[in-house]
């Protein structure tokens, strides 16, 4: 069967570069780009579900209770702001590729890293310093949520760091922007997820 088809010209993927030649930018055609987008979106949907469980747990075990002396900055507003600033940098970097400004992209991704690292510390601060009962109704779910958000922030930092490295090595370009855009999307997902948790724990 396969033999009978062998003479026909078809669209074929390029043969992967040989190791000796070094890596080259991964230029995706429209279908491959859509496939990558879909895969990333699907993965984000799966990773949104743990947040959904945590939100349900918050209301199931603690109702709408918010401790009166809850810190409004650490583990709260400060990481929210920093994560979104990081998202803005990440997207600015990704969009800079449209004008072929790869160095700008790498710089913005690096800024995202710095802001995000500070955000991670601000997110994790309540593990050591808090004004609520850590094994109470609110404390258990809140600290669990902080742990989950911190883990995903760590993952997002690793993703953006990789994109920054690849950009510096010339593997993320105007024609191959997926690395930067996907990193920005992952970062935004993380920032949005934490924003929802922040609203759930502080405002509702």
């Amino acid at each position: 069967m396969t033999r009978s088809l062998a003479q026909v010209k078809v669209r074929q993927k390029p043969v992967p570069s040989s190791p000796a030649a070094g890596p080259s930018p991964a230029v995706l055609d429209r279908r491959d780009y859509a496939q990558h987008q879909f895969g990333l979106m699907l993965f984000m949907v799966t990773q949104g579900i743990p947040y959904f469980v945590l939100i349900n747990m918050r209301f199931m075990v603690a109702g709408a209770y918010v401790p009166p002396h809850l810190d409004v900055w650490f583990g709260a507003l400060l990481p929210t702001i920093l994560l979104w600033i990081g998202a803005a940098f990440a997207w600015r970097g990704a969009l800079a590729l449209r004008n072929d400004r790869t160095r700008q992209c790498a710089r913005d991704l690096a800024r995202t890293e710095v802001v995000g690292a500070v955000g991670l510390v601000a997110l994790m601060a309540p593990f050591w310093r808090h004004s609520f009962d850590p094994i109470g109704r609110f404390g258990t779910v809140y600290l669990s949520s902080l742990g989950v958000a911190s883990f995903y922030t760590l993952v997002a930092l690793a993703v953006v760091l990789g994109a920054a490295f690849r950009t510096r090595r010339g593997l993320v370009t105007r024609l191959a922007p997926w690395g930067a855009r996907s990193a920005a999307a992952v970062w935004t997902f993380n920032a949005a997820s934490w924003l929802v948790l922040y609203i759930v724990f502080y405002s509702i």
């Binding site: 190791p19 760091l161 690849r166």
Partner: peptide, 9 residues
């Protein structure tokens, strides 16, 4: 390694 831009060997 490929995540950080090194070739896949």
């Amino acid at each position: 390694k490929p995540h950080f831009g090194y070739p896949l060997v």
